[in-house]
Structure formats: C-alpha cells, structure tokens
C-alpha cells in the first residue's frame, strides 16, 4: 500500500466514522433542539403548517410585580421609545393582575398576542397586512399596513399597538415603523433560528413554556396533556396558541 493509498484509506475511514456518527447523533441533537424550541429554519424555506407554535403560561408561578417578560420583550424587540401618555406606547406584552371578586384569590399573568387559529385581526385587515403564518404565528406585514387600526378594534385581547411616533435605534431583526400596527411576534426571528421567545427565556420562574402544539412529544404538548389549561375568552372559539394554567 503506497503512502497516498494509505492516506486516502484513512480519509475514507474518517469520513465514514464521521458520517455514521452524525447519522447516529443527529436525531438526538435534533430532539434536544426541539425540546427547547424548534429546528432552525433555513433562509428561504417557508414556514411549515406541520408546526403550530404555542405557549403555556402557568399563572400559579407568575409573580405579581414581576415584569421580567415585559422588559425582555422590550429589549429584544427594540421597544425603547418614550411617550408622555403611556396609552400611546407599544405594549406587545403586559402584566395583568386579577382578583376573584368572590373569593379574593389573586393571579398575575402576562397578556400578549394570543396567536389565534382564527384571528379576528386577520379577518378584518383590509389589505391583508395582518396575516397568519403557516406555523400559526400571527404577524403584521409592515410594508402593506396602512394604519387603519381596524385590527386593534377587532382584537379581543387588546394585544395590538399603533406606533404613534417616528422611531430610532431599532433592532434590525425586528422592523417597526411609525403609523403601522404591531404586536407580539412570538419573537419569530429567534424561533426561526431555533431559539425561544425572549419572554420565555427571561421568566425567572419558568412559568412560560413555548413549543410545537402539533408535536405530541413537545414539552408544551406533554404539559397540556397532563394539566388543565384554559384559553382567555374561549367563548369566541378562536383557538388561541397561548394557553393559561391556574385560572
């Protein structure tokens, strides 16, 4: 066996071992990635309807007064403008405190776009700027939103905001613009990279679980199968992607 033959044999062996190793390990690595969020989506590859992104919020773990999710959302999405009237500012996620009128029992929870299966905002949008991605994430196309605010009138959760003033210092991955309506995107730019939404990552209590509702083995599906959960305003039959536990 000549030196060059030996070299090519070694290269072949190494490649084969690496190949087998990759084949053996990849599903495991893939599963680990999925258990966190999802596999990263290659640029140009369309979102798949096989996935339905959802979120489960455990209100028993969510502390009143804690707004780590709100802060993380604002930082991640470049929501940093100051407004004299808070009602004119963007609130992609807000904390709501509840007190049962009869029993006095209290709850605290974050309210955000509920990423409905049948989103009223998408129904009413005159231009189609409000849209639902194949994987269930409800978004606004900034290029064709005309700022009519009909979606804000239609949203049962008050989850949408109009940008009331010109913006600076934006996050390049999260385009925003004056005169357009916006809302929580489930941090779509992170989810597409296989990461978790910023709020989920920031929650100190681990009260938020994000994942694929269509995958029976995902952490969120397993939790939903075991624990009782509700949808806010379930009477509207919108089949939201965001579910709450403990209320």
């Amino acid at each position: 066996m000549t030196g060059s033959q030996e070299k090519s044999r070694r290269t072949f062996l190494a490649a084969t071992v690496a190949g087998f190793g990759a084949v053996a390990l990849a599903p495991g690595l893939h599963l680990i990635a999925l258990s966190h969020a999802g596999a990263p989506r290659a640029a140009g590859e369309p979102a798949s309807s096989k996935v339905r992104w959802g979120m489960l919020i455990d209100t028993t773990k969510c502390a009143s007064g804690c707004d780590a999710c709100v802060k993380a959302c604002n930082t991640e999405n470049g929501i940093n403008e100051t407004v004299a009237d808070a009602r004119q500012g963007s609130q992609w996620i807000r904390k709501i405190d509840l007190k049962d009128q009869k029993t006095g029992r209290t709850h605290s929870l974050p309210m955000l776009c509920q990423h409905c299966e049948h989103p009223p905002c998408v129904d009413v949008c005159p231009t189609g700027a409000s849209m639902k991605r194949a994987d269930g994430i409800v978004l606004v196309d900034r290029h064709i939103c005309i700022g009519c605010r009909y979606c804000m009138m239609a949203c049962p959760f008050k989850a949408r905001s109009l940008v009331h003033q010109p913006l600076t210092e934006q996050n390049p991955e999260v385009p925003r613009g004056v005169g357009c309506v916006e809302s929580c995107t489930f941090c779509v730019h992170r989810v597409d990279k296989g990461q978790q939404p910023a709020c989920v990552e920031a929650c100190p209590e681990g009260a938020m679980v994000f994942g694929d509702l269509n995958d029976p083995k995902s952490a969120i599906s397993l939790r939903l199968a075991q624990e009782a959960s509700t949808q806010v305003r379930a009477d509207l039959k919108l089949n939201q992607g965001v579910r709450y536990q403990g209320i």
Binding site: V124, C125, T127, I144, C148, V178, G179
Partner: peptide
C-alpha cells in the same frame, strides 16, 4: 390613516374577509 401615503396599497391589496376591504 397611520400611513395615509399608502392609499395605493389600500387600493391594490384586497382582503375579501374584511368589511373594510368590501368598502374599498
């Protein structure tokens, strides 16, 4: 409108499920 300059967008993009869309 928040984006009054996008009148042409309103006239060229039509969502049939929107009552506003019908009004266009």
């Amino acid at each position: 409108l928040g984006r009054a300059d996008r009148l042409i967008v309103a006239m060229t993009h039509f969502n049939p499920t929107s009552v506003f869309g019908w009004n266009v």
